[in-house]
Design a protein around this nucleic acid. Structure first.
Length: 191
DNA sequence: GTGATTTGACCTCG
DNA sequence: CGAGGTCAAATCAC
């Protein structure tokens, strides 16, 4: 097992620690923005391989970059985009293969968070940004076998009763979604 | 040699 | 006191 790091996210990070997490099979790596000394950039992130899906990484971002180094490396845009977008409890719109989508949720409550998960059969990253009450989740689908009808699941926590979603598709189309949150529902079927 | 990573110690918070 | 997060000296890679 060499590759203990997910796909490049366009930022420069330096590792400053690693810990074994109770109940987790894989260690958690701690990274901070390389430009902390100069710019005082407080962005950090944690990377941990998922227990259930070895191909999946759980990445949690803290803070925002003040260093303006958002070099969006991979300009590979998707061939197709999600046509139908809907939000139901625990289910988030689909993304097609090779596409990258961004879910941004703004909560009126304290701390917001989203867990973004690709379908069990696909590989990808599970990414969570946390910054106060604002939470942005980016999912980068890298599975070639993923079809349009497949959906990605999201899990939510410490949420008020209402969330706003903004989905940025690969072609800059922006969809604003609003969903009331009922109870936690296990992954239903593809929708 | 220089800069980055590793790794156990240390710190903090519940 | 334990778990998670950070520090920093030793070590590694270029």
């Amino acid at each position: 097992m060499q590759d203990d790091y997910p796909a490049d996210d366009g930022y420069s990070w330096s590792k400053y620690g690693q810990k074994d997490i109770l109940g987790s099979k894989h260690p958690r790596g701690y990274y901070r923005c390389v430009h902390r000394p100069e710019k005082g950039c407080e962005a950090t992130k944690q990377v941990q391989r998922s227990d259930s899906d070895t191909q999946l990484f759980d990445v949690v971002y803290h803070g925002e970059h003040t260093c303006a180094e958002n070099v969006h490396s991979r300009g590979e845009s998707a061939r197709s985009l999600p046509h139908h977008v809907s939000v139901s409890a625990g289910v988030i719109p689909p993304a097609t293969s090779e596409s990258q989508v961004t879910y941004e949720a703004v909560s009126s409550g304290s701390t917001a968070g989203i867990h973004f998960m690709s379908p069990a059969t696909s590989a990808g990253s599970q990414v969570t940004y946390e910054s106060g009450s604002r939470s942005t989740t980016t999912g980068r689908f890298i599975s070639p076998g993923m079809s349009e009808s497949q959906v990605a699941y999201a899990e939510f926590w410490t949420w008020p009763d209402n969330v706003d979603f903004m989905l940025n598709s690969p072609i800059n189309e922006r969809l604003d979604l609003n969903a009331d949150f009922v109870d936690e529902t296990g992954p239903s079927d593809f929708d």
